[in-house]
């Protein structure tokens, strides 16, 4: 069952991004964090000392829990819009 609310907006047609090599379908304009959340990929990193799983938390660019690698660069997934073919790597160490 989708988390996307359908009756309020029309989204552009779905595109495919890859997450750690696996294709995930998402809509342009969505943030990478939201797209992964909707796709059930909630675990984005592990914490530094305890190695505990972490995922998006604040969605405002403040907590940095959602940092992933896009184009060789660390970016907060919640501030990064989806586009066709975007390759996302999770598991940024810190």
């Amino acid at each position: 069952m989708s988390l996307r609310i359908g009756h309020t907006v029309d989204r552009p047609g779905a595109v495919t991004i890859t997450v750690d090599g696996t294709p995930v379908s998402a809509h342009p304009g969505e943030s990478v964090a939201a797209a992964l959340f909707a796709a059930g990929r909630r675990r984005l990193r592990e914490s530094p000392r305890a190695g505990a799983p972490r995922g998006m938390f604040c969605l405002m660019g403040a907590c940095q829990e959602c940092v992933v690698i896009v184009g060789g660069r660390r970016v907060p997934a919640c501030q990064t819009p989806v586009s066709e073919g975007l390759a996302v790597t999770t598991g940024v160490p810190w």
């Binding site: 009756h7 309020t8 907006v9 029309d10 989204r11 552009p12 809509h27 342009p28 819009p81």
Partner: peptide, 9 residues
């Protein structure tokens, strides 16, 4: 706002 790529119905 909703993303600019979204159209409000």
């Amino acid at each position: 706002a909703t993303p600019q790529a979204f159209a409000t119905r």
